[in-house]
Simulated assay, not measured.
Amino acid sequence: MKPRPDYVSNGFVPDGAGYTRSWSPEVDSRLGLQMAANLLLRLTGIVQVVAEQRYDDTYTPTIEWANLAFAITPDLNVRVGRMVLPVSIVSECRKAGNANPRVRPPEEVYRLIPVTNFDGIDLSYRCNALINQ
Rank of each mutant, 00 (worst) to 15 (best):
M1I: 15
G32I: 05
P86F: 01
I63S: 01
L68Y: 01
S91H: 06
C93M: 07
L112Y: 09
N100G: 02
I46V: 13
V8I: 13
R102V: 03
L123W: 07
T73E: 09
Y7M: 06
E26V: 02
G81S: 00
P86Y: 11
V109L: 15
P105D: 11
V27Y: 02
L123H: 03
E64M: 00
S9Y: 06
Y55Q: 12
R111S: 14
P5T: 12
R104A: 13
A69K: 06
S29W: 10
D15S: 12
P14R: 04
P106T: 08
A96E: 09
T73C: 11
V47L: 06
P105Q: 12
T58W: 10
R102P: 01
R42G: 00
L43K: 08
V49K: 05
I121N: 05
P74W: 02
P74D: 15
F12R: 12
D6I: 09
V78R: 02
Q133S: 13
R42I: 04
G97D: 03
A66F: 07
S88D: 14
R126L: 04
R102M: 11
N10A: 06
D122N: 01
D122I: 02
Q48I: 04
S24I: 03
V84K: 09
G45R: 11
Y55L: 07
A129T: 09
Q48M: 08
C93A: 03
L40Q: 15
P61V: 04
D57W: 00
I121Q: 00
R42H: 14
P86A: 09
C127K: 05
Q133V: 15
A66L: 01
R54Y: 00
S88P: 01
T73L: 12
G97V: 08
N100D: 10
L68S: 07
D75M: 09
L40A: 15
R126F: 08
E107M: 13
S24G: 01
K95S: 04
I46F: 05
S91T: 07
N117Y: 03
I89M: 14
L112Q: 15
T116R: 11
V8L: 10
V103A: 13
W65I: 01
V90L: 09
D57I: 05
P106L: 14
L76Y: 00
L33F: 14
V80N: 07
V90Q: 12
P101G: 07
T116I: 10
P25G: 00
R104H: 06
W23I: 12
N38K: 13
P105T: 10
L112E: 15
S29H: 06
S9T: 14
V78D: 00
A36F: 07
W65V: 08
L33N: 04
A37G: 05
E107A: 15
L130F: 04
G81P: 05
E108P: 01
V80P: 05
L40E: 14
Y19S: 15
P101Y: 01
Y19M: 02
N98S: 09
T58F: 01
N38F: 02
V115N: 01
I131S: 09
L31I: 14
G45K: 03
S9V: 14
S91N: 02
N98F: 14
N98V: 13
